[in-house]
Simulated scan of single mutants.
Amino acid sequence: MARNVEIKARLTKRSELEDRIVPIADSGPIVLKQIDQFYRVAEGRLKLRQINGEHAELIFYRRSDAAGPKTSDYSRVPIVHPDQLSQLLTSALEPLGIVSKTRTLYLVGQTRVHLDEVEDLGNYLELEVVLDPSQTEVEGSEIAKNLMQTLGIRSEDLVEGAYIDHLTR
C-alpha cells in the first residue's frame, strides 16, 4: 500500500491562502471536479471517485480520524466503467453517502496541496505528504507541520475525520 501523511483544515480566507501557495508551488493550479461515493466496509474507508466526468478510481484507505498530521495507507485502482461498478457496489455494500467537491490542486515538493470547495460544507485545505518507501511517518509529519507554518494554518483550524463524516452527522 502507498502511504501519505495528511492534514485537513477549515478555511476562512481561501484567497489569502492561495496567494501564499502560488509562489512556492512547483505546479498547479489544476481544477478537478470530484464526486466520491462512500461505502461501508469492515475497516477503513472505500470510495468510488469520479473525476471531471472523465476518469474514475476505486480507493481504499485506512487512517486515524484525529485532527493534525496522520498517516494514511491507501490503494487506488483505475476504473473503466464507474457507473456499472457503482451499481455493483451499491448492491453488495451499504452506501454511506456522496461527497461532491471542486478541488484545486497544487504540488509543493512531495506534497499535494488541495483547496477543496465541498458542497454543503464549505472550504477546506488538505495537505497530503506522499511518502516514498524509505521515509518515516515522523518525516512526513515534519514536512506537513513545516508547510502548515509556511501557509499560516493554525492547529485550531484542523478538523477530524473525512468530509463524509461531516456530511452525515
Rank of each mutant, 00 (worst) to 15 (best):
V138I: 13
E94Y: 04
E160Y: 08
I79W: 11
E160R: 15
S75G: 05
L131G: 02
S100H: 09
R169T: 14
A162H: 03
R76G: 00
V99Y: 00
T90F: 08
K70A: 11
P78G: 10
R169P: 06
K70M: 11
D157T: 05
R63E: 12
R49E: 15
G152S: 08
E117K: 09
A66C: 11
L58A: 09
L127H: 02
V80F: 00
I30A: 14
R45F: 03
D65F: 04
G68H: 02
V77R: 01
R154Q: 15
I30Y: 10
I30C: 10
E137A: 08
H166M: 10
S134D: 14
K33E: 15
D120C: 12
A162N: 07
R154A: 14
L115G: 00
G44K: 11
N52T: 10
Q149E: 15
Q87A: 13
I51R: 15
A162G: 03
K101I: 06
P82F: 07
P95G: 07
A67M: 07
G97F: 12
V80T: 12
S72T: 04
V80R: 14
A9K: 03
E126R: 05
Q37W: 00
Q50A: 07
A162M: 01
T136A: 05
Q34R: 06
G109L: 06
A66F: 02
Q149D: 13
E126I: 03
D83I: 05
R49T: 07
E54Y: 01
E54K: 00
I79Y: 08
Q84I: 11
I164N: 02
D73C: 14
S134Y: 08
R169M: 13
P69N: 09
L147Q: 00
R76D: 08
P78T: 13
L115H: 02
R20I: 06
R112H: 09
V80P: 01
G28E: 13
Q110F: 04
A56E: 06
L121R: 00
D73A: 15
I7S: 00
T136Q: 07
R14Q: 11
N123K: 11
L96F: 08
I51M: 12
D120S: 15
S86Q: 14
A2V: 04
